[in-house]
Simulated assay, not measured.
Amino acid sequence: MTSVYTVVIAGASSGFGAALAHDLAAAGHQVVAGARRPRPDAPRMRYVPVDLTDSEATHHFAQAAIEHLGRVDGLVYCAADPGAVQRAWQLDADAFARVLDVSLLGFVRLAGHLVPHMQQAGGGSIITVGSQAARTPVDLLAAYGAAKAALEHYSRCLAEELSGTGIRVNTIGIAAETELAATHRTAKAALRGRPSPHPPLPDVAESLPLARWLLSDQARHVTGQSIEANRP
């Protein structure tokens, strides 16, 4: 990618996705941000409402991004569903399916539209947001952890298959205070009947430099990696 690049961010309603979208736009990059709820545009950043569980809506989002940006240098997938917080043996299958649909299949749908475009353009950087829960069991988050594990494995497969095309694919795990983290804590506390123990998490801004680096040409040699931020 050039020093100024174009990025599609899916899952930018709040948290890491929203913070990264504003951070990149403030640095002069062009951003199309997909969000489940409407948000105002900003200089160098256009918000597009999208339901990533809907194939047609995802297709329209991808087309809108390509038309607006002309070329897609980067794709960051941050979308996740906060539901299905439950003991593993008590999980509702439909709620579990929703978590998988948002966290994994939404990316599969979007990659199907944007990867061919990036191939034609000669390369780019794809980042998926994973989780430590993908590799370490977390109480009451079996659905979330399983979905993130599937996303991380799919990302590694994508990286392997795109080797030599100029497109690199990496997964990052963030440790930050986000709306998702707060929702998980609240749901856990309700199940336990007491506050959910949780270490204090840093501001989401502390996780942005890693994503910026992976999107840049400085990381053109890095692909197929899962990089986890450590909790404080």
Rank of each mutant, 00 (worst) to 15 (best):
L180E: 09
T186A: 13
I172S: 03
L191C: 09
E177K: 08
R185P: 07
P202C: 04
I172Y: 03
T186K: 15
I172H: 03
T186G: 14
P202A: 05
P202L: 01
E179L: 08
R192T: 12
P197D: 07
A190P: 08
E179H: 07
T178D: 05
H184Y: 01
P202H: 01
T183I: 12
A189R: 01
S196L: 04
E179R: 07
A176C: 05
A190K: 07
E179W: 02
A205S: 15
G173A: 09
A182R: 11
E179D: 14
E179C: 09
R192C: 09
A181Y: 01
A187I: 04
A181N: 13
P202D: 05
A190N: 10
E177Y: 02
P195A: 06
H184C: 03
R194I: 10
L191A: 09
A187C: 05
R194T: 12
I174N: 05
H184P: 01
A190T: 10
L191T: 08
A190E: 13
A190V: 11
R185L: 07
A205M: 08
L191W: 02
T183S: 13
P199M: 04
A175P: 11
P199K: 00
K188L: 06
H184Q: 05
G173P: 07
A189Q: 03
T171G: 13
